[in-house]
């Protein structure tokens, strides 16, 4: 599975964000390690909403790449992000679930959390353009 994620991990932006992946069987968790540069408002302090959104987009791409052979990185068509709690200055975790995957478009949901998975800080719902590699030419 990690081989399939190599394409994503070779992305300069993904490596700059420092995103790591932890996979156990068919469960893939993305980790955004806390760093000061992820802070949006230092006075609260809270993580930048854009950083959390971007992390969940990366998680969605990883979720798609991990379980399908794709010729290129998934491209977002649209995403809707709900912010549920302020992101504390600590690591963020996220998992993607694929609601529907067609031959060109995939519908993905992502949940992001910090201390408890049952207390998500944000979630994302979006459509991604995908290019699966056909198994028989």
């Amino acid at each position: 599975m990690n081989e399939r994620l190599q394409k994503l991990q070779s992305s300069p932006y993904v490596s700059r964000m420092g995103v790591r992946f932890d996979d156990h069987g068919d469960e893939l968790t993305a980790i955004l390690p806390y760093d000061e540069w992820l802070i949006g408002n230092p006075l609260i302090p809270a993580l930048h909403g854009g950083a959390i959104g971007a992390f969940m987009e990366i998680t969605a791409s990883a979720g798609l790449l991990a379980f399908t052979d794709l010729a290129t990185l998934p491209k977002p068509i649209d995403v809707a992000v709900d912010y549920l709690r302020p992101g504390k200055p600590q690591d963020v975790y996220a998992r993607a679930s694929i609601t529907r995957q067609g031959s060109r478009v995939a519908n993905v949901r992502v949940d992001a959390w910090q201390e408890r998975r049952a207390a998500p800080i944000a979630n994302l719902h979006g459509h991604f353009l995908i290019k699966p590699i056909k198994s028989n030419g």
Partner: peptide, 17 residues
Amino acid sequence: SIGDPETGVMHGGVVTA
């Protein structure tokens, strides 16, 4: 800020932020 090194396109996450 590049998302896909093959195309050199900026990552959607940067546009999101």
